[in-house]
């Protein structure tokens, strides 16, 4: 796995922009709610994430941190 990301559950508002624009479709909307009552996006471990940070570029809440090998 070349890269991974960490999503701050409490910042995420489930806008799904990261899901839409992730080239590897490595993020999906989870069923868990955060304190504000949003369904939060979650990163699928073992996906083909390359650490390209497109998700972080799209995120309006600055909720995503990206890591790369």
């Amino acid at each position: 796995m070349k890269g991974t990301i960490r999503i701050d559950q409490e910042r995420c508002k489930g806008c799904a922009l990261c899901i839409e624009f992730c080239p590897k479709k490595a993020i999906s909307l989870s069923g868990t709610l955060n304190l504000k009552g949003y369904f939060v996006a979650s990163f699928e471990e073992g996906s083909e994430c390359t650490g390209c940070a497109t998700c972080a570029v799209m995120c309006p809440e600055v909720a995503i941190e990206v890591f790369k090998n």
């Binding site: 890269g3 991974t4 650490g51 940070a53 972080a56 600055v62 995503i64 941190e65 990206v66 890591f67 790369k68 090998n69």
Partner: peptide, 9 residues
Amino acid sequence: MKQVYSRPR
């Protein structure tokens, strides 16, 4: 793993 993106200072 190296962090390539984090919150701006």
